[in-house]
Simulated scan of single mutants.
Amino acid sequence: MADKQVIGFIGLGFMGHGMAKNIRQAGYELWIKGRKNRTPIDNLLAMGANEATSPREMAEKCDVIHLCLSTSAQVEATMLGEDGILAGARPGLIVVDASTADPASTERMAKALAEKGGSYVDAPLGGTPVQAEEGTLSAMVGADAAAFDAVLPVIQTWAKTITHVGEVGAGHKMKLLMNFIGLSYGALFSEASVLAAKVGISPAVFREVISPSRMGNGFFETFMAYVVDRDRDSHKFTIENAAKDMGYLNDMATGAGVMNVMAGAARQYYLHAMSTGHDQDYVPHLSDRVAALNGIDLADFAKK
């Protein structure tokens, strides 16, 4: 292991655990920091990982630190806090931000780290927790050429498809565009499923017709696995995170001076679900909220 970089990982949630596991299994010395849930931490410790007490300690020990957090606010706190990464950053440190984040914040963090002699890489993810465990995620990378080359072997431990999108911030911009499409699908599929039920077409028949057509796709399949089969965990991405990402997307569009009617409309569905206490439900569960707004029980229709 002496010839390999020392890797840190902060954020061991649905995606982070699998990514960190694959880094460790590739033979890298690994330092980790989680939150309240000890299960992924203890699992990685059993594999030979080390636990850091703070981001600062991790920065003092590691060559590359991965962040896989929920919001830009969390990323900024991890970077800028009293015991944050910048407090312990050494020249040459590379931070790989795999979160889905606000590109404007990403650029600020990159500038702050550069002042310490380090490099910031945004490498948000495409895929599922299962793919994270398998090491077959996709990564959209924003970085200068030197930083990209330096971290590519590490990213290859957890990603099968890696695209160097452009300079710092480009990866997060691309991820927001991807989520704009996917989360708008979520709103569209919710409306369409509810309308189908309202006019007497069951969710099962709706899926049977759409799935093999040109309108079918992977997102449709996992979405309808909940609508029809009531598989609660078919697409484990929370409504809270969906609303956050659509907020970042809308901010990006505003900054670019782009009219974004569809993105604004889709975001309202997720905000409504959050305001009615469903923030920790998953994206396909939005269909139930749209159904309730229209006075029907979609689960009951799914039985027909």
Rank of each mutant, 00 (worst) to 15 (best):
E82P: 10
S99P: 01
I65E: 09
G81E: 04
M58G: 03
D63K: 10
A77Y: 06
L125K: 09
T71R: 02
G127Q: 09
A110Q: 08
R56A: 11
L67G: 05
N50F: 07
P129L: 09
T100R: 04
R108G: 02
I94H: 08
A112W: 09
A132T: 09
K33G: 01
G88N: 11
D83Q: 13
S119A: 14
N50T: 06
K33Q: 09
D42M: 12
D97Q: 10
V95F: 04
G92H: 01
K61L: 13
S54R: 12
A46P: 08
T71G: 01
E60P: 12
A89P: 03
A110P: 08
R90N: 00
P103F: 10
E82T: 15
P103K: 09
P129A: 06
G127S: 05
P40A: 02
W31K: 04
A52D: 01
M47F: 11
K36Q: 03
M58E: 04
V75F: 03
Q131G: 04
R38I: 02
W31A: 02
A49Y: 01
T39C: 05
Y28I: 05
N50R: 14
T53Y: 03
A110K: 08
I32D: 00
T78D: 04
G34L: 07
S70W: 02
T78I: 12
V75G: 00
M58Q: 02
D83T: 12
G92A: 01
L45G: 06
L125S: 08
R38W: 00
T39L: 15
A46F: 10
G127K: 11
E76R: 13
K116F: 04
A104Q: 13
K33T: 00
G88Q: 07
W31P: 12
G118S: 10
G92K: 06
T106I: 14
K61F: 00
D97Y: 06
G81W: 14
D63A: 09
Y120D: 07
A114E: 10
V96I: 11
A112C: 05
G92S: 03
G27C: 14
A101G: 10
N50E: 13
